[in-house]
Nucleic acid binder design. Structure first.
Lengths: 213, 213
DNA sequence: CACTCATTTTTTATCGATAATATATTAAAC
DNA sequence: GTTTAATATATTATCGATAAAAAATGAGTG
């Protein structure tokens, strides 16, 4: 029988997760203030666990914090998103060549993501597309079995989320999709240069927001 | 007249910095427990700011935290250090080619680091060497003007610090030093493949601790 | 009307105390 | 003597209240 894990999360943890969710999901928009006592009141707790949660999401980079004034959801400008994507690129470029031949399970995983992306493209569901796209790239980073690296990559999800908002306004969802199948094909091929394709992918993304300043 | 900045740090911030320092400097060793009220008593504060500080250094990855038990300085095993060095490598490999020709100031900076490293090597001062070595690699990452990337690189300093303890036990300080001048030379040369040398650098490091399991 | 300064309000920062939980200790049972 | 249960102790988790700081308000002055 599967062990029924009794989840006993501290208030701080629960509040932290909820706040992060709200930021990621856009319920808390960049610039919005997060007032400690307001949140505390909402959850029926005291100020302390809320404070701790806020400080943690501050360290995680979700909010800016001015002493004696408070926390507000971070506003990302284009240059910060660009920076985040460079880091993503750096990590993925490192991970990709480590994918040894015959990683069938990985290819299957990536193809699943491709299918989801394609489906979302046809439905013009930007949010779903962004999610599948993220999963695609995450799979690449995860493939090299480096938890530290994966954690770093994931810590950028905030910026990636912001990016996904831009999809289909600045960027065409179809064009982004088109960048991915060749990468999977190259992994299967073994002779192709996967890294080159990935660099191309990021170059094109960068080109888009450079042109839309 | 230069503005005299009145530094007004919150207790939480001060405590956080002090604790991080202690961990980095080794005054708090891996496995050591950090008790909230003990720290609070030491600094003459209440528990609250100490708690916040500890939670922050927890999200920063310096300590592990077990609910209702407390925080202890993280113990890194070899595989985690290996992971951290892979991330360092990934970021530096990305940054290095971006260093365009004629970055004289950068080369000067790197040569300063080389000098410090050489000096430390002769004096057999491992700590000083590790510091200069870190500065060398940090300079490379910093060169690409990506604050996000630099922040990520720096978040690994904990692991790098641990690594420095191993210098001259597992690793010979002279051999590590020898890996660096060629990189600077290659940057100056313009025709040489800097990335290849950097990869070589990390391959050798990895080889050392692989062999010492 | 604009500007300064005092006043009030809002919100964070910190405190001291209590509740909840986990660990250590002891006692009892078999 | 080992195992189980009960108790005691240590420590975190949370609370409610107060202090400190910043921002907003408003009165007075040129």
């Amino acid at each position: 029988m599967a062990k029924q894990a009794v989840v006993r999360q501290s208030l701080k943890e629960q509040i932290e997760n909820i706040l992060i969710d709200r930021i990621i999901e856009g319920d808390l928009a960049p610039g919005d203030r997060i007032k400690e006592l307001t949140v505390a009141k909402e959850f029926g707790t005291s100020q302390a666990p809320v404070r701790e949660a806020i400080r943690c999401i501050e360290t995680l980079g979700y909010v800016d914090h001015v002493p004696h004034v408070g926390a507000m959801v971070k506003t990302f400008d284009k240059s910060q998103i660009k920076e985040a994507y460079q880091v993503r690129e750096a990590l993925e470029i490192y991970a990709l060549p480590l994918i040894s031949k015959g990683q069938d399970r990985l290819v299957v995983e990536l193809e699943k993501c491709l299918a989801k992306m394609e489906h979302a493209t046809k439905e013009r569901d930007n949010r779903k597309f962004a999610k599948a796209d993220n999963q695609f790239h995450r799979t690449i980073v995860a493939s090299c079995n480096n938890k530290t690296m994966l954690a770093m990559w994931e810590s950028l999800k905030m910026q990636s989320q912001i990016m996904s908002v831009l999809v289909d306004t600045i960027l065409s969802i179809d064009e982004i999709y088109a960048l991915h199948p060749p990468i999977v094909a190259a992994i299967k091929d073994e002779n192709s240069d996967t890294v080159l394709l990935l660099k191309e992918h990021y170059k094109i993304l960068e080109g888009y927001w450079e042109s839309s300043k």
